[in-house]
Simulated scan of single mutants.
Amino acid sequence: MTLSHDVAGDGPALVLLHSGVCDRRMWDPQWAALLDAGYRVIRCDFRGFGRSPMPDRPYNNADDVADLLGHLGVERAALVGSSFGGRVALEVAARWPDTVTTLALLCSGSPELVPGPALRSFAEQEDALLSAGDVDAAVELNLATFLGPEADGATRENVRLMQRHAFDVQMAGGEEFGQIAAEIDLSAITATCLAVSGGRDLPEFREIAAGLPGLLPRARHVELPWAAHLPSLERPAEVTALLLDFLRASD
């Protein structure tokens, strides 16, 4: 199965990977600016999000992204990943280092993430609400956890719709198939990397971003004091400018 996706523009390939709270529509605020900057911009929905259906067999998200790049004839690409999308981007860059030129990671997860008290507490609350059938409350828990005060009302409503849709797709998906684990060595990554953290984010994600320069020789860390977990939605123009400055410097 090829992931549902959008592709537009000419020039170097730039792949946008969404967070686990959203789908590919989260990149709407960046889409036009990245096209205007001269990139061939690609964004996709992971399985069970947006317009990509639930899997019908065991799968791997990084394999899905690599298959999409092959389908589109992309041999080299920059990856921008938000949260869970950042975790997938790191796996792609580690397994296929010659494919990934540049990594921009916004409050990224990691294949090496060990959940601490804050993330475990969130997961337990979410599981309890979904088990009780209170999907609306689970959606609101995600908004309260992952969006900071910079997010306006329209942004909150958009995230609410994306998260609710993901829950609906996943809960209606029938038999659940698990991820195929792949061997991942982050030290294999050769791409230039920008690791962004949010000063209002959960501590686990801040620690991942701060630790990446110690793992990747071409990584640097930037913290946005105002940001929670989804800075590209909280201050879209500021984050778009940050991404473009980094991408241009890395070309």
Rank of each mutant, 00 (worst) to 15 (best):
W96K: 10
G173V: 01
R206Q: 14
P111C: 08
Q125D: 07
V135K: 05
D201T: 00
A144E: 13
I180W: 13
S197A: 15
H71E: 12
R218F: 05
P97C: 00
D134P: 12
V88G: 00
L202D: 02
R218E: 06
L79P: 00
G173N: 00
G174L: 06
A137R: 11
F84P: 09
V135E: 05
E207M: 06
G211A: 09
A237T: 08
G153I: 12
D67I: 09
V114Y: 11
R156F: 14
T2N: 14
R156W: 11
L247Q: 06
V239I: 02
T99H: 14
D168A: 10
T190A: 14
A154K: 09
L212N: 03
L106N: 03
A227R: 02
T240Q: 12
P213R: 07
R57W: 08
Y39G: 04
L243Q: 01
A228W: 08
D45V: 01
L147G: 01
F205G: 08
I180A: 06
V80T: 08
V65C: 02
L244Q: 07
L17C: 08
V74Y: 02
L143Q: 00
D6Y: 15
R57G: 06
N142I: 11
L90K: 01
A33G: 11
A219Q: 02
V15W: 02
H5K: 06
P225Q: 04
A132S: 13
V92L: 08
P12F: 09
G20L: 12
N60H: 13
V21Y: 15
A62W: 07
F146T: 04
V74F: 00
H221M: 07
S4A: 15
R40E: 04
L186G: 02
E183V: 09
L230Q: 15
L119K: 09
D127W: 10
E126I: 07
V239S: 00
H18A: 03
G199I: 00
L243M: 01
D136K: 12
L244E: 08
G133Y: 04
Q125M: 11
D67G: 06
P29R: 06
L230T: 10
S121C: 15
L247V: 07
L215M: 13
G109C: 02
L119G: 08
A151Y: 02
N60S: 03
P117F: 13
D64R: 07
G133I: 04
V196M: 02
P217M: 07
L72T: 05
A104L: 07
G70A: 07
A210Q: 04
L72V: 04
G85D: 13
I180L: 15
P115I: 05
R40H: 12
C107Y: 14
T2D: 14
I189Q: 09
S19T: 03
L113P: 03
R25C: 06
R25V: 10
